[in-house]
Design a protein around this nucleic acid. Sequence first.
DNA 1: GACTTTATATACCGATAGGTATATAAAGTC
DNA 2: GACTTTATATACCTATCGGTATATAAAGTC
Lengths: 188, 188
Amino acid sequence: MDTKEHILQTALKLFAEHGFATTGIQEVTQTSGIAKPTLYYYFGSKEGLLEGILEKFFKPLLDNLTTVSNCPSDVPGSLYKFAETVFKFAAENKDFYRMLLSMGFDPPQSRTYLIIKPYLEKEYEIFESFFKAAQQFHGNMKDREKQYALSFIGLINTYISVQLNFDLDIDSSFVFRVVHQYMYGIFS
Amino acid sequence: MDTKEHILQTALKLFAEHGFATTGIQEVTQTSGIAKPTLYYYFGSKEGLLEGILEKFFKPLLDNLTTVSNCPSDVPGSLYKFAETVFKFAAENKDFYRMLLSMGFDPPQSRTYLIIKPYLEKEYEIFESFFKAAQQFHGNMKDREKQYALSFIGLINTYISVQLNFDLDIDSSFVFRVVHQYMYGIFS
DNA sequence: GACTTTATATACCGATAGGTATATAAAGTC
DNA sequence: GACTTTATATACCTATCGGTATATAAAGTC
């Protein structure tokens, strides 16, 4: 049994269920069945534990999104793949995504937000670059890459939030509808 | 000087800046320049303080949204008024809206989420009823009132979140663009 | 003027927060 | 086999948490 990994998974579950701030280190160690210094041996601090979680989960998602982003000539296809990637990731890592959504709306000055900020910015950059590159193939997007990147991430996270809270699952037709709504609005 | 109101405002500011869980009652009373039992005299508990804040700020917003919702024959006009109402409210109550956004993504089982949940549900219902009523005037919406209500609120909150964090201000053309994007997508 | 209600302060409570000093057992290294 | 590194446990630290018992001063009520 990999103790470090076990602690990390236990902590993630508790953070997702009760929130980072309201989950004590004591609760993590007790639930993990280990002693407190063991946790501090591996992660150094409560924030170090959070960084360990982010490093493990967020990096792979960013890598996948980067891969998808390299085809700006096909906007509809790429958006569909983006959405599919994130929906799938969220479904496979529910605890992590729940924690992520929660922290993504923490006060901008809070310690927790400062820790996830670089990851969120990287995610945003991937989408912004994509929409910027897409403009050379899609004339009528008018320098609105910032607006489109933000609202696309926002729309996806809105739907994921609902899915997580009501334990729905997604199929490909759902992903299609979301992307379709994003591209063509509600009147089509 | 209204002591109760003064405590409430101070607490709201601290909750918005540092988060509810990470703001201590001690910090609230110290910043307010009052003693702890005074706070407990007015609000009973930390959660009571939160309820006081919600009661004061969220109710008026819901009232305004209800008023706007009574014209389902004019979808574009109504959506514009909805968006304008929420954007304006957020701009006038930045601390409250920051706190609201943050708590709206707290873990669904957490104490804080359970406290704001009824308010968020009421807000959602207003939009859902609107889209449902709008269908008798707007044929091609296909029983998707849930989807539309969710994504409309989500889109607006996405933009508000950015505005709050980067201290942008909104003008009517911005509101128009957001609603336009929602109705007709990004390709128009 | 006696009595009640409203509002505020001093001083304290047990529980828990995040974190550590110290010891030690096991495992790898020479 | 001596030595170092890795990994874990006991017991403890100080600070702060949310909350309260008690006292009292002012203001309204009769």
